[in-house]
Amino acid sequence: MPQYYIKLTVPQGKTAQYIALGRGWGKEFEFMVIILKAIMISGRTLGQGASLEAKMSPEFFNATSSCAISESDYNALGISGDENVLVRTEFGEVVLSARKDDGLPPGVIFIPMGPWANAVVGENTGGCGCPLFKGTEAEVEPTKTQVKDVCELFADLKRLAGEGS
């Protein structure tokens, strides 16, 4: 069962955040979901595979910089056409385009494997060499921020003069 943070107006006109269970969400309630708590999994897709060896191409960007969300979570988040989603885990955060996926159960989000997904995957391998690419707890919220392209994603990692030589 997914958990949502909700925002509602309290008497003094201030806003506060609450955690609410996913059930019971509906128009009759005067609150707006702002954050979804979900389990993030990453994995292969056809589009990701077809552009796997063309990582600088727009095809790879389109195929892997998106986040699939179940229909009910997507609607609960109220994502509008021009909005992306910010996915945050304890290991990092990344902005992705949002996509409805009727194959996903509520509370699970899917990001195609690649550098966008790995921005929020932890490095702990549990003693067996393999990070937890599936199953990281994440928070998802709508955002107007643009999705970084592959160059921007690595911009801060490019080395400066002389280092490593």
Partner: peptide
């Protein structure tokens, strides 16, 4: 690995000399 490893390990890669042998450009 720059694409397929978790970000923290990629940051570690960026701090050391890296040699790439590959047909294709990638991160």
């Amino acid at each position: 690995p720059a694409s397929n490893f978790p970000r923290k390990t990629v940051e570690a890669m960026a701090e050391i000399p890296v040699i790439q042998v590959d047909p294709y450009p990638n991160p």
